[in-house]
Design a protein around this nucleic acid. Structure first.
Length: 263
DNA sequence: ATGGTGGAATATCCA
């Protein structure tokens, strides 16, 4: 089985590229982030035409997460226990959706950006990650053999190798010790990055800013991850980041990440 | 080996 994650940066503007990519890549289930659509705006028919069922959660033009699967889709869960909200008054955002596809519980996660080191949004980001770690630890405590993939845009570069320039990110979000510690806590809870062992070349990234010619200059970040439970991680036989999909007019600023799982 | 950002409730916010 092949599973994938992709921050599409608007499903409506990206739908032709997404469906073309699905047809080329024989992916069985995919977690999508930043759909930027309400339920009534999501192009369900375009996925159904390719044999995918879709569970989507979107509340406004911001955020939005979905799971599409052609190997079954059940036990859909929107958000997770303890997930913090944002705003005044604080309200849950569309940043987490889980569903069971082909025997694997796939989570599509869009971790808050943080915006700036002194911004309340960074506090929100860290609290959101701490709550995710608590929930995900609980799932493994309940069932140590659980097949779980925490997939999505984590908005964190866990190591210095995951950014094109360490100096550039000094004083910015995505590389701060607090953010890296929050990411490491999820790893320590038992969820391992199954993509890195198969994509360890220096300069391997999943995201390149639209501005400043970041992509042609190969100035990106690795911020999209599939963190897998122990039982699922041991089934992983391959992984890839589809850098080609970042090319051309109408590309998302993120590349799709694909994981191959043995049956 | 791409194209001087791009998406959305668009003239402003979000990434």
């Amino acid at each position: 089985m092949r599973i994938a994650t992709w921050n599409v940066n608007s499903i409506r503007s990206r739908i032709d590229r997404v469906t073309a990519w699905l047809e080329r890549n024989e992916v069985d289930a995919i977690a999508l982030q930043e759909t930027k659509a309400r339920e009534d705006q999501f192009p369900f028919d375009r996925f159904e035409a390719l044999g995918y069922e879709v569970a989507h959660h979107g509340l406004s033009q911001w955020n939005g997460v979905a799971v599409a699967s052609r190997v079954g889709l059940s036990d859909v869960q929107v958000g997770f226990d303890g997930m913090p909200g944002w705003g005044e008054p604080a309200a849950a955002e569309a940043r987490a959706l889980g569903a069971v596809c082909g025997g694997v519980r796939l989570w599509s996660l869009y971790i808050p950006n943080g915006r700036a080191l002194e911004d309340p949004h960074l506090t929100y980001k860290l609290e959101w990650l701490a709550a995710l770690e608590r929930a995900a630890s609980g799932w493994l405590a309940d069932d140590p053999a659980a097949q779980i993939a925490l997939m999505g845009d984590w908005n964190i570069a866990p190591t210095d190798a995951d950014v094109w320039s360490v100096a550039y990110y000094e004083g910015r979000t995505h590389t701060s010790p607090a953010e890296r510690a929050a990411f490491a806590a999820v790893v320590d809870a038992g969820y391992s990055d199954v993509v890195r062992p198969h994509t360890s070349e220096p300069g391997t990234f999943t995201y390149w800013d639209y501005t400043q010619l970041r992509f042609p200059k190969r100035q990106g970040m690795r911020i999209d991850f599939a963190l897998c439970s122990p039982a699922l991680a041991e089934r992983v036989v391959g992984a890839a980041i589809d850098r080609e999909e970042r090319k051309g007019k109408g590309a998302s600023d993120h590349a799709p990440v694909v994981v191959e799982i043995a049956d």
